[in-house]
Amino acid sequence: DEVRLHVNGHTIEFRGIDEEIFKILEEAAKRGADEEELRRLAEKLLR
């Protein structure tokens, strides 16, 4: 299960996240989070 999030012209792939987590990451990206911040956030949410 892989999703792709487009951030500042880059595509970031995440594996094993559900739609709810994806929406949180998408919102963070809209607020200016970079790839590293998004990955840290995803790790926290998946715990």
Rank of each mutant, 00 (worst) to 15 (best):
H6F: 00
E2F: 14
F14M: 09
D18Y: 03
V3Q: 15
I21Q: 15
I17Q: 02
H10W: 00
E2M: 13
V3C: 12
R47G: 14
D1C: 11
R39C: 07
E43S: 07
L5K: 01
R31N: 15
E36T: 12
L45S: 06
F22T: 06
G9M: 02
E20G: 10
E27K: 10
E27D: 10
K30V: 09
A42K: 01
D1A: 13
L38W: 01
L41H: 02
L5E: 03
A33E: 05
N8V: 02
R40S: 13
K23L: 09
A42S: 05
E2Y: 11
F14N: 07
R39V: 10
A28E: 08
E13M: 03
A33I: 08
G32C: 04
N8P: 04
A42C: 12
R15F: 15
L5I: 15
H10G: 07
L25E: 00
H10T: 13
L45A: 08
R15G: 14
I17C: 05
K30T: 11
N8H: 03
I17Y: 03
E36K: 14
R15I: 15
E27P: 00
E36C: 07
L46D: 06
K44W: 09
E19K: 05
H10A: 09
D1W: 10
K44T: 12
L41Y: 05
F14L: 13
R4I: 15
E37Q: 12
I24H: 08
I21M: 15
I17P: 02
E37W: 11
E26G: 05
R15C: 08
R15K: 15
F14W: 01
L41M: 12
R39S: 05
E36P: 14
E13N: 02
E27L: 12
E43P: 00
V3W: 15
R4E: 06
N8E: 05
K44M: 13
A29I: 11
V3L: 15
R40I: 11
E13C: 07
I12A: 01
G9Q: 02
N8Y: 00
V7M: 03
H6C: 11
E43D: 12
N8K: 04
H10M: 13
F22P: 01
R47F: 08
V7T: 02
K23G: 09
F22I: 11
A33G: 05
E2I: 15
I21C: 10
E27N: 10
R40D: 11
K23V: 09
L5G: 02
L45I: 07
E2Q: 05
K23W: 08
L5W: 00
F14Y: 03
E13Q: 01
H6V: 15
I17D: 05
H10L: 11
A42P: 00
L41S: 01
E36D: 12
H6K: 12
R39D: 03
H6D: 10
K23Q: 10
L38R: 00
A29P: 00
K23I: 09
K30Q: 09
H10Q: 14
R40N: 13
A33T: 07
E2N: 12
V3R: 15
R31Q: 13
E2G: 11
L41V: 06
G32H: 03
D34P: 08
E27C: 10
L25R: 00
L41T: 06
E20K: 11
E35L: 11
N8A: 05
T11P: 03
R31E: 12
E43H: 06
E2K: 15
L25N: 00
E19M: 09
V7D: 01
E20H: 12
R40F: 11
R4W: 04
K44C: 13
E36L: 10
A29W: 09
R40Q: 11
A29H: 07
E13D: 13
F22Q: 06
A42M: 05
R47C: 14
E36R: 11
G32R: 01
R47E: 14
I21P: 01
I24Q: 10
F14C: 06
I21D: 14
G32W: 03
G32M: 04
L25A: 00
L5H: 02
G9C: 04
I12T: 01
V7S: 02
R39G: 04
V3M: 15
V7G: 02
A42D: 00
A29Y: 06
E35Y: 11
A28I: 09
L25I: 07
A28K: 07
E37S: 13
E19L: 07
E13T: 04
L46I: 13
T11K: 04
E13F: 02
R40L: 12
L45E: 06
L25H: 00
E37L: 09
F22S: 04
L46E: 08
E20M: 08
G9N: 03
E43N: 08
A28S: 10
D34A: 10
R47I: 14
V7H: 03
L46K: 13
E2V: 15
E2P: 11
E19A: 11
D34L: 12
A42R: 01
K30E: 08
R31W: 11
E43Q: 06
G16F: 02
E26P: 00
H6G: 05
D18P: 09
E26N: 06
E37C: 14
L38P: 00
L38D: 00
H10Y: 01
E26M: 10
D1L: 14
K30R: 10
A28Y: 11
R15E: 15
E36G: 13
H6S: 12
R39T: 07
V3P: 07
N8D: 08
R4S: 11
D18W: 04
R39Q: 06
I21H: 11
L46V: 14
R4D: 02
E20D: 09
R4V: 12
E36W: 12
H6I: 15
T11D: 15
E19D: 11
E20L: 09
H6N: 14
E26K: 11
K23E: 11
A42T: 03
L38C: 03
K30G: 11
G16W: 03
K23Y: 08
G32Q: 02
F14Q: 06
A29G: 05
E20Q: 12
A29E: 02
D1I: 15
R15D: 15
I12N: 02
R40C: 07
A29K: 02
D18C: 06
L38Q: 00
L38K: 00
H10N: 10
I12Q: 01
A42W: 04
E36I: 14
H10S: 10
L41F: 05
L46P: 05
D34Q: 14
V3T: 07
A28T: 08
E26F: 11
G9D: 04
E20S: 07
I12G: 01
E19S: 08
V3E: 04
T11H: 10
I12C: 03
G32S: 03
V3K: 15
I21K: 08
V7W: 01
T11M: 08
L45C: 14
I21Y: 04
E26A: 09
R15Q: 15
E26Y: 11
